[in-house]
């Protein structure tokens, strides 16, 4: 009997060790809730996002086929995963830790909530708590964002407006981020700015950022608070960058591309001189043959 107690204690201790490194989520983040209800359409979108972003490690929910890593990635259907609050999950998906990557730069807040709705569909006991009713007017309708440039001061102006009481009005105190599109991702310009009473936020544009051959840069403006603004964003191309044209790297003549880049005069000179040398050799051989022939003719006579 005593031995079995001891055994139990050892097991409990070892299980306790597994959970020793608790992932602590700040209180204000843990209290965060989704701004929209988890409907079937949201869940389906979440399933597609899960398949592309999470499945490679977390496997199929409920099938316990996660990748063997240390620490093991939990199965989304497991109690370990489901005991997290919605806010905990949102924080963990956004920030990442150790082998769990951070998704805050790759997925939008809406997409992360969609994935959480998919994970929750494996918990029968789950009842969704929506975000505490947002202050009236805090969810904005028909948000419009306009990007323009002020050439003299090298600034970019972002203007936000929305429809309130059927009238289009500027949105004040909205935090906005400005990005320049690059080949593999979006480069943040300046820092996040808050719009003034006119709904205008001004960004200092770096003087040396390269654009295309005519200086065009594709700009993207997004409000930080996705719960209020939804997925509103603006996408504009402005001639604000430095005109950049750099020739292809294999354009210049070099030791390693002599075959493609030979000038025609050099190629012709080379070919003719080779032909001339060979022609001379052939000529000499023919002459030798002629001498030999005339010699043997003389012998016969």
């Amino acid at each position: 009997m005593k031995r079995s107690y001891l055994f139990l204690i050892i097991i409990l201790l070892s299980v306790g060790r597994l959970f020793a490194q608790e992932w602590v989520v700040p209180v204000e983040n843990a209290a965060k809730r989704s701004p929209f209800a988890f409907k079937d359409s949201i869940r389906q979108a979440g399933a597609a996002l899960y398949m592309t972003n999470c499945k490679s490690c977390h496997g199929d929910p409920g099938k316990n086929n996660t990748v063997k890593l240390v620490p093991p990635p939990p199965d989304p259907a497991s109690a370990q995963m489901q005991k997290n609050s919605d806010g905990d999950m949102f924080y963990k998906l956004s920030m990442g830790r150790g082998p769990m990557p951070s998704f805050k730069n790759t997925l939008s807040a809406t997409d992360i909530w969609r994935i959480i709705s998919f994970i929750r569909s494996f918990n029968d006991k789950y009842v969704q708590e929506l975000a505490p009713s947002l202050a009236p007017g805090s969810t904005l309708e028909q948000v419009k964002i306009l990007i323009s440039m002020i050439k003299e001061t090298n600034q970019v102006q972002v203007k936000i407006s929305s429809v309130k009481d059927k009238v289009r009005q500027p949105v004040a105190n909205a935090e906005v981020k400005l990005f320049a599109k690059r080949y593999f991702g979006n480069l943040m310009i300046d820092e996040a700015h808050t719009s003034d009473s006119q709904g205008i936020a001004l960004f200092k544009f770096p003087a040396n950022l390269p654009g295309d051959s005519k200086g065009f840069v594709q700009l993207l403006a997004k409000p930080t608070d996705e719960t209020a603004f939804g997925e509103a964003k603006a996408d504009t191309t402005l001639a604000i960058g430095v005109e950049t044209y750099r020739p292809p790297l294999n354009e210049q003549r070099a030791l390693w591309n002599v075959v493609q880049k030979t000038p025609i005069w050099l190629l012709l000179t080379f070919i003719f001189s080779v032909l001339a040398v060979w022609g001379l050799i052939v000529y000499v051989l023919l002459q030798v043959r002629a001498i030999y022939k005339s010699g043997s003719d003389n012998k016969k006579e």
Partner: peptide, 28 residues
Amino acid sequence: CPNGVYYFGDENQDAVTNGTTKETVRLS
């Protein structure tokens, strides 16, 4: 890469993107 070692990008655009965090920064 799980540790954010690699940045990759286009020198003509003066931007590189981290493979782990997907954060884009100025190359120069």
